[in-house]
Amino acid sequence: MRQSKVYYTNFRTTFQENLLQKLRRLIKTAGMDHIDFEKKYTAIKIHFGEMGNLAYLRPNYAKVVADFVKDMGGKVFLTDCNTLYVGSRKNALDHLDTAYANGFSPFSTGCHVVIADGLKGTDEALVSVEGGEYVKEAKIGQAVMDADIFISLNHFKGHEATGFGGALKNIGMGCGSRAGKMEMHSEGKAEVNQDRCIGCGACIKNCAHSAIQIEKKKAYIEPDKCVGCGRCIGVCPVDATHSGKSDSNDALNKKIAEYSYAVLKDRPHFHISLVVDVSPYCDCHAENDVPIVPDVGMFASFDPVALDMACADAVNRQPVIEGSMLSEMEHHHHDHFTNTHPSTNWKVALEHAQKLGIGNMEYELIQV
Rank of each mutant, 00 (worst) to 15 (best):
Arg2Gln: 11
Ser4Gly: 10
Ser4Cys: 01
Thr9His: 07
Gln16Ile: 07
Gln16Met: 13
Leu19Lys: 05
Leu23Met: 07
Thr29Pro: 00
Met32Lys: 12
Ile35His: 14
Ile35Val: 09
Ile44Phe: 05
Lys45Gln: 10
Phe48Gly: 12
Glu50Arg: 12
Leu54Pro: 08
Ala55Pro: 01
Leu57Asn: 11
Asn60Phe: 02
Tyr61Phe: 15
Ala62Ser: 15
Val64Ser: 10
Ala66Ser: 14
Asp67Ile: 04
Val76Lys: 08
Phe77Met: 01
Leu78Asn: 01
Asp80Gln: 11
Thr83Asp: 07
Leu84Pro: 06
Leu84Ser: 15
Tyr85Asn: 11
Asn91His: 11
Asn91Cys: 06
Leu93Ile: 08
His95Gln: 08
Asp97Met: 08
Gly103Ile: 06
Val113Thr: 02
Ile115Gly: 05
Asp117Gly: 12
Lys120Arg: 11
Glu130Pro: 02
Gly131Glu: 05
Glu133Phe: 09
Val135Thr: 15
Lys136Asp: 11
Lys139Pro: 01
Val144Met: 10
Phe150Gly: 07
Phe156Gln: 10
Ala161Gln: 15
Gly166Ile: 06
Gly174Asn: 04
Met182Ile: 15
Gly188Met: 06
Gly199Arg: 12
Gly199Asp: 08
Cys200His: 07
Cys207Met: 10
Lys225Gly: 02
Val227Lys: 02
Arg231Thr: 07
Ile233Phe: 00
Gly234Asn: 09
Val235Glu: 10
Pro237Leu: 05
Asp239Glu: 15
Lys245Cys: 01
Asn253Phe: 00
Lys255Glu: 04
Ala257Asn: 08
Ser260Val: 01
Val263Gly: 03
Lys265Asn: 08
Asp266Leu: 04
Pro268Arg: 07
Pro268Ile: 00
His269Tyr: 03
Ile272Lys: 14
Tyr281Pro: 00
His285Phe: 13
Asn288Thr: 13
Val293Lys: 14
Asp295Glu: 13
Gly297Met: 04
Phe299Pro: 15
Ser301Trp: 01
Phe302Pro: 00
Asp303Gln: 08
Asp303Phe: 02
Ala310Cys: 01
Ala314Lys: 14
Met329Cys: 13
His331Glu: 12
Asp335Glu: 06
His341Gly: 04
Pro342Asp: 02
Ala349Met: 13
Glu351Leu: 10
Glu351Gln: 14
Gln354Thr: 03
Lys355Trp: 06
Glu364Phe: 05
Gln367Arg: 12
Val368Phe: 08
